[in-house]
Design a protein around this nucleic acid. Structure first.
Length: 570
RNA sequence: GCGGGUGUAACUCAAUGGUAGAGUGUCAGCUUCCCAAGCUGAAAGUUGUGGGUUCGAUCCCCAUCACCCGCUCCA
């Protein structure tokens, strides 16, 4: 099971300190979100796992952290200044919106209504450097981190003495004035990217046995796909989608999106795009690019750059002249991921509601009675709706007052199935109450709290996050908090493990509730100090997903847990 | 930007044209030898914000903000 809808994630995020609405005390501000104490741990872990995977676990990668503010010319020559400010027109009659260069005259192509004057929508945030707000100080908040990597190509290559192929990774904030943000943290105006520019040889300069750009492109797609899977995303909810020729930006030879199927209306959506951008970007920022290449890349001559971002290949031997060495602009493969999107995907994927134990039949009586009542009422409503349909001939639309016939039937069926499957289907009642139209049925409003109360008692919410991503790795509890010897040992364990692991101590509830609390935030291991501990210096280590326990000597806890979590200290 | 919906305690939701309730959660204490147990007590909301109608608005009307759904858009 994964999150059934995004609202579950939003509500859990708020309740347990993962993600808050930004500027909440002033009523919020559109599409911005703050990561709370657990959210920042989770997102940091995602970024750290990414950095480890693409920088530390390879021999051919370097890191970078470029400034958010850059010379305006970067965005002129990258093409953003032109393509990021579309003049748009709206139809005053049918409210559709068009790019003004796609429309003839001042008439709507669809309904022939009158169009507004063109308005410029610049998707880049502007700001001014220095005290005077005029064009001389105009700067943009970067809409992508990639350009910071491109313009530093020569710096990185020379200082690290790199030979092709090699890549540069960067994590950082980007800003886009999106027209339609939404879907929680999925599309926001301020977001964090994890981008790689992997520089390689253009096909012409390859020597035998070397991988070409297309092979490297495929390898990156595979590696990035597998990264998500390794950290817990089920492959069935992840897909590679190759962009069609029509979708491709003119500078991209090929792009494959890695998509995750998010809950609710969001559905299949992009986590990451892996593009083969050829030599477009480095050429764009270089002086002295030959006319033929400018034409091929549809670039205009760069009259402002003071560098040529090319590469001297000493090994290359010209097959015709036998001349050694060549100077050329490298190709680039760009795996560009969203840190917030990955974090959201991991949260959605990890979310589980489980029946911990089967409810006693005596506890179910009230629910069964309420359902019988609801079923009868629904039957009546269905019959009414059918009669009306036969009479009026017209299918009733989904109105404020009552659900449609189809909705009624679906709810009725859902309820019947849920009742039949009891006690195993306890969790299904909530789904039934959330079906379209159900909110307008009073009978279900009465059933909901009864089912909810049972769910509280017999189910748990558990985030099955990969241990490396979990915000808290270990929690320590005393089995009895009014037994000072046990409390003392538990607190000492927390203190001793603190240098190795993110660990918390809690004794403010019964043991069952303490476990549930940690389940809900994805803590993979809970240590409980009990009476046996006082005799043999062992504790129980309880595993989140299975709820199984094993006894471990206190002295072995650090290596034992670090090994299970996959930390490399021991 | 357009259309529809929502906004009440930290969360989930009730209620009413006459100064707001429940469950969960949180906190304190007691109790408890392993999975949201029990008991006692407590804190917590100018009902998103600002106007209007009214003797009186959380409820009706208008505006605004935020979120959700659908369009539109999306390197």
């Amino acid at each position: 099971m994964v999150a059934p809808d995004m609202e579950k994630i939003v509500s859990l995020s708020k309740r347990r300190g993962f993600i808050f609405q930004s500027s909440e005390v002033y009523g919020g501000i559109g599409s911005t979100w703050d990561y709370g104490p657990l959210g920042v741990e989770l997102k940091n872990n995602v970024k750290r796992a990414w950095w480890r995977s693409v920088v530390y676990d390879r021999e051919d990668m370097e890191g970078l952290d470029a400034a958010i503010l850059m010379n305006r010319l970067v965005w002129r020559y990258s093409g953003h200044e032109a393509t990021f400010s579309d003049p748009l027109v709206d139809c005053k009659q049918c409210k559709k919106r068009f790019r003004s260069d796609h429309v003839q005259g001042k008439v709507c192509p669809e309904c022939t209504g009158e169009l507004t004057d063109p308005r410029s929508f610049n998707l880049m945030f502007q700001t001014y450097l220095g005290p005077v707000q005029d064009d001389s100080g105009l700067a943009y908040l970067r809409p992508e981190t990639a350009q910071g990597i491109f313009v530093n190509f020569a710096n990185v290559q020379q200082t690290m003495r790199r030979k092709l192929p090699f890549g540069v990774a960067q994590i950082g904030k980007s800003f886009r004035n999106e027209i339609t943000p939404g879907n929680f943290t999925f599309r926001t105006r301020e977001f964090e990217q994890m981008e790689i520019e992997y520089y390689c040889k253009p096909p012409k300069y390859l020597q035998s046995g070397e991988k070409d750009d297309e092979v490297l492109h495929q390898e990156w797609i595979e590696q990035r796909f597998n990264w998500y899977v390794r950290l817990g995303i089920a492959p069935c909810r992840l897909q590679k989608r190759e962009q069609s020729k029509e979708e491709l930006a003119h500078y991209a030879k090929a792009t494959t999106d890695i998509e995750y199927i998010f809950p609710g209306s969001l559905g299949w959506s992009e986590l990451e795009g892996v593009a083969n951008r050829q030599d477009y970007d480095l050429s764009a920022h270089s002086k002295d690019i030959p006319e033929t290449d400018l034409e091929r890349l549809k670039l205009s001559k760069n009259i402002d750059s003071i560098q040529k971002l090319d590469y001297f290949d000493e090994q290359y031997v010209d097959p015709e002249t036998n001349k050694k060495g060549a100077r050329y602009i490298p190709y680039v493969i760009e795996p560009s991921a969203g840190a917030d999107r990955a974090t959201l995907a991991f949260l959605c994927e990890a979310y589980n509601e489980e029946l911990v134990s089967e409810p006693k039949e005596s506890d179910l009586t009230q629910l069964r009675e309420a359902c019988t009542l609801a079923a009868k009422n629904l039957e009546k409503k269905v019959a009414e709706a059918e009669k009306q349909k036969a009479k009026g001939g017209e299918t009733k639309v989904d109105t404020k007052e009552s659900p449609t016939l189809e909705q009624l039937k679906a709810i009725s069926d859902g309820l019947a199935r849920a009742v039949e499957g009891l006690p195993k289907t306890l969790l299904a009642f909530e789904d039934v109450c959330n079906m379209p139209g159900a909110d307008r049925l009073d009978v279900l409003k009465k059933t909901r709290p009864i089912a909810a109360k049972l769910c509280d008692e017999y189910t748990r919410v558990v985030l099955k996050l990969h241990p490396q991503l979990a915000p808290i790795k270990v929690a320590v509890f005393p089995l009895k908090k009014n037994e000072p010897r046990i409390v003392e040992v538990a607190k000492k364990i927390r203190h001793d493990l603190q240098p190795y692991l993110r660990i918390v101590y809690d004794d403010t509830a019964g043991i069952g509730k303490l476990y549930r609390r940690q389940d809900e935030i994805g803590t993979p291991f809970c240590i409980t100090v009990d009476f046996q501990t006082l005799e043999d210096h062992t504790v129980t280590v309880r595993e989140r997903d299975t709820m199984q326990q094993e006894r471990v000597a206190i002295t072995q806890l650090a290596p034992h847990l670090c090994q299970k979590i996959g930390l490399s200290i021991f």
